[in-house]
Design a protein around this nucleic acid. Structure first.
Lengths: 156, 156
DNA sequence: CTACCACTTAGTAGTAGTTACTATTATCAA
DNA sequence: TTGATAATAGTAACTACTACTAAGTGGTAG
């Protein structure tokens, strides 16, 4: 489709950092990680390469709920959870649900190509810390406001 | 919880436009709509009121996949489809799936509060137009790149 | 009806994340 | 080794949004 990417020092380092990092860093986080090894790399280079690498299928790109894009060393399909406390994004080991496309297609008249499913909650570490430390009591409330909360209420 | 909002001309117009508009406009789109009726309204006013109105539960706020926030005249829970061609966001009439929280909770150790499910495809109008007009042939391809495509492929 | 004042506004400046541009440099096929 | 072309560093610009401030207004108490 498009010619192979030249493997520059910058591109290789970006790819390396993404493959060894399981936490789906944002472009800025990748920038900081790579700059530790190549101090004068340009932020623009990081952005351009993340884009090119995800176009060529070497990495995955996540666009989650209104905040900075994040990038993913593993390309296979999966869903994500974000911790509302520490902000970390992690993969969820749960079976995908492609059959739902048919239901949506019938209900909406759209031709459905893809879907994204994203969870929000507290990660194990923050759950522990919550018992001792201080998390604001209505985190769940404000969180479901923010997400439109397709979860508990069932009226329509 | 908090005192009732003063019903100013600006606030009323913003609310009116949202209630009669089914397409989940972005803040900027609301700005344009309201400005047609009140030409010197400030963009900041639109942003602040969308925030206040959604806080007070009069409208809903959507934060979809990396782009501008969108606002919603209907407050009840539902999922959304976005057309990859024209960008319109619409509601999907499909039953919510709260049971999945348990599965994710067991699999990840997270305490799950909420989830968001979002579809991408071609709306009925654009499906028709595609037959006649010219849509780039690999729209579905680039789209699934963009969404991480938790859809067709099933390896892991 | 009038006066008050906290809430709200218009206008503008500032911010974060991202993209675009340009002159210089590096990759890699021949 | 060389040369076309892709990629880079650095910077400017852009978009979506938030913060700030002086002036204006809605709604209540008198």
């Amino acid at each position: 489709m498009n010619q192979p990417l030249r493997m520059t020092k910058q591109r290789r380092l970006i790819l390396e950092e993404l493959l060894k990092n399981k936490s789906h860093p944002s472009a800025d986080e990748v920038y900081r990680l790579v700059r530790a090894r190549l101090p004068n790399i340009s932020l623009g280079t990081v952005y351009r390469n993340l884009e090119l690498l995800s176009e060529s299928g070497l990495i995955g790109k996540l666009e989650l709920s209104g905040v900075a894009k994040r990038f993913d060393g593993t390309v296979e399909e999966h869903y994500h959870v974000r911790c509302v406390q520490c902000g970390q994004v992690r993969d969820v080991e749960v079976a995908p649900l492609p059959e739902i496309h048919v239901a949506v297609q019938d209900a909406s008249g759209y031709e459905i190509f893809a879907h994204r499913l994203e969870f929000r909650g507290l990660c194990p570490q923050c759950r522990k810390r919550r018992g001792i430390g201080g998390i604001e009591p209505d985190a769940a409330q404000s969180l479901s406001d923010e997400m439109g909360s397709a979860s508990t209420r069932s009226s329509r």
